[in-house]
Design a protein around this nucleic acid. Structure first.
Length: 297
DNA sequence: CCGGGCCCCTGGATGC
DNA sequence: TGCATCCAGGGGCCCG
């Protein structure tokens, strides 16, 4: 009884984090609003735990594009007076989200204040970009274009985009062969492939029938895993990400991938393939759901 | 360089 | 019902 209630609760309050599909959805929504806009003013949270770097350098700059690498949003800026090309690097962390829109309601009254706003950019068309982040895991950094190593080391060492031609079954197989860490740890480590987090690691491993703790994934299974990663990420992008508590798209709605989850957060429920009850374990310090029957070590 | 472990933070869920 | 405790997790950092 208690266990059953716990499962229901867990399903209803499914939590998650923005991964590549969610960030890509945000990017697509932001691009038409932000491209070409000039930043008139910047405010950021002076909280001692806030993770902001050189954000003041945005003032007066124009946003020339909205791009993405892995889970990072990259917004290149027009050159400064001395010709320096800067870039805004934005990571949503666990609970970060972005809202963009007019600062005033149509009737001229001020919009209701958003909660947990950690930074805001006032733009030259009167709109405002608000960065909300209850848990303060998100990061905003302004760096010289392409110079990531000092400020955003993970971005500097980021692996190939999983939906690009650079990410091949051979690249994945070679990367997995070079290490004996659990395969899920390798997927979460952004150096092998960019943008995979806890949700899509569990989903891809379930689809590929590979146990998340497996330390031996040969070329054959790596090719299956490659196909699973590409399929899962593409399907999630098509549905604008997964519905969960913290993630909200720019317009305040949620993604529609939750109904398609086969593994993530599904422990206690039957495997959609074989009916075996999915189990929960911990791999790489992350909650992990898998099928003990059809996912093999 | 690599892998493993811990920590940052805070709202919601759980436990008593 | 209320208060205390637990839990979630991306990525930085440290250690062996």
């Amino acid at each position: 009884m208690a266990a059953a209630r716990r499962r229901v609760t867990a399903r209803r309050t499914l939590a998650g984090v923005p991964e590549l599909p969610e960030v890509e959805s945000v990017r697509r929504q932001l691009a038409p609003w932000l491209t070409g806009r000039r930043v008139e003013a910047v405010w950021w949270d002076p909280h001692p735990h806030a993770r902001f770097h050189a954000v003041d350098r945005l003032t007066g700059r124009r946003l020339t594009a909205v791009t993405r690498r892995g889970k990072f949003l990259l917004l290149p800026l027009d050159p400064t007076a001395d010709g320096t090309h800067l870039e805004l690097v934005l990571h949503l962390g666990m609970t970060g989200s972005l809202r963009v829109g007019p600062d005033q309601r149509p009737d001229g009254a001020a919009a209701a204040p958003l909660s947990h706003v950690r930074a805001r950019l006032d733009l030259d068309d009167g709109s405002v970009l608000a960065f909300r982040d209850p848990r303060r895991f998100g990061r905003l950094s302004v760096v010289e274009a392409g110079r990531y190593a000092e400020v955003v080391p993970t971005l500097a060492r980021l692996g190939p985009e999983p939906l690009s031609a650079d990410f091949t079954p051979e690249v994945l197989a070679a990367g997995l062969a070079a290490s004996r860490a659990p395969v899920k740890a390798r997927l979460l480590d952004q150096r092998l492939v960019a943008g995979v987090g806890n949700i899509y690691a569990d989903e891809a491993l379930w689809r590929a029938r590979i146990h998340p703790a497996s330390r031996r994934v040969g070329a054959g299974r790596a090719a299956v895993l490659h196909a699973a990663l590409v399929a899962v990420l593409a399907a999630a992008i098509a549905r604008e990400g997964t519905t969960f508590r913290d993630y909200q798209m720019v317009n305040g709605q949620s993604g529609r991938y939750a109904d398609h989850l086969d593994a993530y957060g599904q422990h206690g429920r039957p495997c959609r393939r074989c009916g075996t009850t999915l189990r929960r374990t911990v791999v790489a310090q992350r909650g992990t759901s898998y099928c003990p029957r059809c996912q093999r070590v």
